[in-house]
Write a protein that binds this DNA or RNA. Sequence first.
DNA 1: ACGATTTGCGCC
DNA 2: AAAGGGCGCAAATCGT
Length: 583
Amino acid sequence: MRIAVASTRAGRVELVDPDGDLRLEVDRAALPAEVARLEVEVKPRWVWRDTGEWAPELLAAGVRVARCHDLRLCGAILAASTFVGEASTPATTRPAWLPQGPAEAMVPSASGPVPSAVQRGPALFDLEADPVGDVSAGSAPRAEEVAAEHDRQLALVAASSRPGALRLLLAAESAGALIAAELHAAGLPWDRRVHERVLAEALGPRPTPGRKPVRMEELAEVVRLALEAPLLNLDSQADLLRALRSAGIAVDSTARWELREHDHPAIAPLIAYKRLARLLSANGWGWLDEWIVDGRFRSEYVAGGTATGRWATAGGGALQLPKAVRAAVAADDGWMLVVADAAQLEPRVLAALARDPAMAAAGRGRDMYRAIVDAGVVATRDEAKVALLGAMYGATTGDSGRLVPRLARAYPQAMGLVDRAARDGEAGRAVTTLLGRSSPLPPARWHELQARATQPDATDADERRARSAARDWGRFTRNFVVQGTAAEWALCWLAGVRNRLADLAPRSPSRAAAGSGPVFARIPHLVYFLHDELIVHTPEELAGEVAEAVREAAEDAGRMLFGDAPVEFPLDLVATGSYASID
DNA sequence: ACGATTTGCGCC
DNA sequence: AAAGGGCGCAAATCGT
């Protein structure tokens, strides 16, 4: 059973089962209680325009739903998917109240979510996104319209070339939207004192506003002496670059990887300075004050926020937590963190996706890179890693590029798959993940470049530019199929973990997690997700069962995507008090 | 003065 | 070992 949810012009909420006779209208304040009742009585799939419009207030009121269909996210997938036939009639047009185009970010506003003004294309060099017209989401839909749009999307799936795959993808994507809201509501448990200790050890005591930490001042002075530039401001890269050059260090940028190549007494302290400056500006005391409230870090997760289906975040940088501060992620008293990540996920996904028997054999054990060495393809584990990453990212030069051909001989099917994806991209065609998420098409500017290169009066420079842009886009599509399919595996894993945790829930532990909000205070709950890694915060007596649930969900995900393909997806998994880095 | 762009770097 | 894919964020710099 499904229930369409929509707000009325009078600010009330309609709940409609379009296939039955359920039809309710309630005050917004009464919504959580009504949803909770229906969740118990009929356990429907909730159908709504945007999970972000509804889930937060439900969670704040202590109500969680099991399943939903997010029309915005699913509509974006279907609009782009090559699994969906071209024969779209006027009757299958997306409604005005759903944003057009793939995966625009929706930003909250007073009148409800609206699409952000800019539609960002992939961040590929200087290619600009297509200009986008009026993308106003229009007024809020009525429940009948929500249900009709759901019907339209289901019909597209049914008429597609791979209905089963798309159904799984849409379910996983919608589950992801719920989980994103739940991660925000629960928050990541954070020990401010541990974080402050990390900062003090690295930077010295917290400086007064406007001053730099003493460790940074000391290092800056060493650099100035070594460069004989007594007044140099290290924070100005232009000044810094000039100073480096007049000290005889031939660099084209102040980037660390380039600095590292040079031997000069200023280099080591400069790199140390930059490391501290980064820690201070990204995760220093200011960040603590802004983001840690009541012992929780509440980032906003953006499910489906990137072209490949990986998530993004808005604010707080939750997906870029430096290893140095992860020790501050600490379970509440009486609770534990179950930390799990999928080891070598992307190469395993490639092996399974391509059904490459030789690479799958390497992907059967715990260490795929070691297995590639044992198979005699390359000499060292490092080479195996670099070669495999190079194959997936499209490396052509350097050691990585040099090793790729050996990989191609050993694993022709796997390399064939990514090479084909690259050729499709170079030709301006979309590529598609296992479950049906398709890559965006290159922007108009890209096509102009290609067209110009074929003109009779095209210059060498025109051709060079066009070829370079084509190859850039080919590297994007090459990586897209692997990264996107890995994101699908991870989403299925995450959704599976969520479902299994819900089954563990009824037994309540003795101690409540005080900062986790009304829904999660007494039950194991997800608190973090990072592409191929997740954390569950759990009462300690349930940690063993949670770990088992996480493992089972990973096995399920492998089967759901790849059936009996002989590739394993082993987890690195620990139950611990803190997320302190172990490697 | 202020918004947009660039640079550098954190994560996967 | 090399500088290949996807992101977000902060600060400096550029452009108006």
